[in-house]
Design a protein around this nucleic acid. Structure first.
Length: 473
DNA sequence: CTTAGTTTGGG
DNA sequence: CCAAACTAA
C-alpha cells in the first residue's frame, strides 16, 4: 500500500484552485487533511473576530471534505511537532501547504521543513496566496518598491490570466476521519453567521453576486459605506477561501473589453503591495517604516482610545464605522480611512493601538494589510497619506454619506436627526436636537475634541518629525 | 483627495 | 461678485 500524503491547511481554506492539495492528490492515493487547531503563526489574540471566522470556515471545509470522502483532522500543539508526529505515524512522505508570505508563517514553514526532514518527509510549499510573489518584482535598480504606482505597473505586467484549478470531485482518505471539532469561538466575537457566510461555497457565492451586482458600478459606488458597492471579499481572501487568481480571473472574464475591472484589480494590487512591503521590511507591524517617525510625539491617551474603540467619539461618521466593526467584524473602506485618520491624527494615539484593535476585531485581518494600512494612514508608511491630509470627519460624512443613512444604521441614537445636522449634531439648533430626541452628552456624546484644534496639534507634531529628519541624525 | 490661499472665468 | 479650479504645504 502506498503511503498517504498530508495536506496542511493554513490560510488556503478551499478545495478549488489549491495547488498544494492538487499536488498531494497527484502524489498519493490518499490524503490526510489537517489543520492546526490553534494557529500559532496567525497569532490571534484570545478574543478575536478572525478566530470566529476561522472556526466557521474550518467547519465548512470539513463538511466540504466529507462530501468528497474525506474530512478535516484538527492537530494540537505546534505545527512542526504535530506534523512530524503525523508523518511518523501515517508513514506519509509528503506534506503539502500553501505559502504564506508573512514573517511568522515563513519561519513556521522552515521549522516544519526541518522537523519533517528529520523523519524523512518532504514539505512541498505551493504558491497561491498572491498573484505576484513579493520577491518576484523589483525596481530597475533591483530595490523593493516604495511607491505604489510603479509597483502597480510592474504587478500588472507580471500577473497572467491563467485558469484556476478546478474543484476536486473526490479526495480519498487513507483511513476513517474522526469528527472534526474546531476550538470554540470567543463569546465577545461578532455573530459571524448573521452577517456573513464563511467557507468556500459562501465565498464563491459572494464573488458571483459581487461581479453580477456591484462590479459594473464599483468605481462610482465603492466609497459610499451605505451602499453595497465593495466586494466584501476581504475575509475570503484573508483565509484563502478564494484565491486571488479565482477573483481576478472572474473579474476579468466579466469585463474582457471594458475597463471596469481595472479599479477593482487595483485594490487587489494594494493587498499585494502590502505583502511586498512587509516581506522586505518584516518590522512593519511594530516599527515605523520611515525611521524619522520614531520621534513622533504620540499621546498615550487611554480614554481617547477607549472612546474610539467603543464608537463614542461624538463624531457620527467615525462612531458609525467603529460600531459597524464591533457588530459585524468588518468596516467599510471609507470609514477605515476616516476612523484611522481620526485615531492617529486627531487623537495622536499611536497607530499601533489602532492596528491592534483592528487585528482583534476584523474578520478579514491580514498582518501585512493591517500593518501597511495603519502606517499608510499615520504617514510613516510606504507611499503614505501626506501628513497634512487629515480627514475632516464632518466633511467626509457629508460627502460619502450625504443622507446620513450609514450613520442612522450604526448609531441609532441619531436616527431621527435631519441629514443636514447628522454629521455634526453639536452644530444643530436646540429644537432640532430635541425633536430628534438627542441630548448631547447624554443620549449621544459631545465631540471628544475640536477637530480643527486637533488638526493644528497634529500638524505641529508632524512638523517635529520633519525637523528631526532635516536637523537630526 | 485637507486646507487655505490664489487665480480664473462666467455672469 | 462668487464659485470652481488650481496650487503649496
Amino acid at each position: 500500500m502506498t503511503p498517504p500524503a498530508v495536506m496542511w491547511f493554513r490560510r488556503d481554506l478551499r478545495l478549488a484552485d489549491n495547488r498544494a492539495l492538487t499536488r498531494a492528490l497527484a502524489r498519493a492515493a490518499g490524503v490526510i487533511c489537517v489543520c492546526m487547531l490553534e494557529d500559532a503563526a496567525g497569532a490571534w489574540a484570545k478574543e478575536s473576530a478572525s478566530r470566529a471566522w476561522r472556526a466557521a470556515s474550518l467547519k465548512a471545509l470539513d463538511s466540504d471534505l466529507r462530501e468528497r470522502g474525506n474530512g478535516l483532522v484538527g492537530l494540537r500543539g505546534t505545527a512542526p511537532e504535530a506534523l512530524a508526529d503525523l508523518a511518523k505515524q501515517s508513514g506519509a512522505r509528503l506534506v503539502c501547504c500553501t505559502r504564506d508570505w508573512t514573517p511568522a508563517a515563513m519561519a513556521e514553514e522552515e521549522a516544519v521543513r526541518e522537523a519533517l526532514a528529520a523523519v524523512g518527509t518532504e514539505l512541498f510549499v505551493a504558491e497561491g496566496s498572491l498573484l505576484v510573489t513579493p520577491d518576484s518584482i523589483a525596481t530597475h535598480s533591483g530595490e523593493p518598491f516604495r511607491v505604489f504606482t510603479p509597483y502597480y505597473r510592474a504587478w500588472e505586467y507580471e500577473w497572467h490570466v491563467e485558469e484556476p484549478l478546478p474543484a476536486l470531485e473526490e479526495i480519498p482518505a487513507p483511513a476513517a476521519v474522526p469528527t472534526f471539532e474546531p476550538s470554540t469561538p470567543d463569546s465577545s466575537a461578532p455573530d459571524i453567521a448573521t452577517h456573513w457566510s464563511p467557507g468556500e461555497r459562501g465565498s464563491q457565492e459572494s464573488l458571483t453576486s459581487f461581479v453580477n451586482e456591484a462590479l459594473a458600478d464599483y468605481d462610482q459606488n465603492h466609497d459610499f459605506p451605505a451602499v453595497r458597492g465593495t466586494s466584501r471579499l476581504s475575509p475570503a481572501l484573508a483565509f484563502g477561501e478564494l484565491s486571488p487568481r479565482q477573483i481576478a480571473v472572474t473579474v476579468v472574464d466579466m469585463y474582457v473589453a471594458a475597463g471596469a475591472a481595472a479599479p477593482y484589480l487595483r485594490q487587489l494590487a494594494w493587498r499585494e503591495f502590502a505583502h511586498h512591503v512587509l516581506y522586505h521590511a518584516p518590522s512593519l507591524p511594530d516599527r515605523p517604516w520611515r525611521a524619522e517617525y520614531e520621534v513622533m510625539p504620540w499621546c498615550d491617551d487611554e480614554g481617547a482610545l477607549a472612546a474610539w474603540r467603543e464608537g463614542m467619539t461624538g463624531f457620527p461618521f467615525v462612531d458609525a464605522g467603529m460600531r459597524e466593526l464591533r457588530e459585524t467584524g468588518w468596516m467599510h473602506n471609507r470609514t477605515r480611512l476616516v476612523t484611522g485618520s481620526f485615531l492617529a491624527k486627531d487623537l495622536l494615539v499611536p497607530w499601533q493601538d489602532g492596528e491592534r484593535w483592528f487585528w482583534e476585531r476584523l474578520v478579514d485581518a491580514e498582518l501585512a494589510v493591517n500593518a501597511f494600512n495603519w502606517q499608510w494612514l499615520a504617514g510613516s508608511g510606504a507611499d503614505a497619506a501626506p501628513y497634512f491630509r487629515i480627514f475632516n470627519p464632518m466633511l467626509q460624512g457629508r460627502r460619502f454619506d450625504p443622507d446620513g443613512s450609514y450613520v442612522r444604521r450604526w448609531v441609532p441614537e441619531l436616527a431621527q436627526m435631519p441629514a443636514r445636522w447628522i454629521h455634526s449634531p453639536w452644530e444643530a439648533p436646540a429644537e432640532e436636537l430635541s425633536k430628534a430626541g438627542v441630548v448631547l452628552g447624554k443620549t449621544y456624546p459631545r465631540p471628544l475634541i475640536d477637530h480643527f484644534e486637533a488638526r493644528d496639534r497634529a500638524l505641529a507634531a508632524y512638523e517635529h518629525v520633519k525637523e528631526s529628519r532635516s536637523g537630526g541624525a
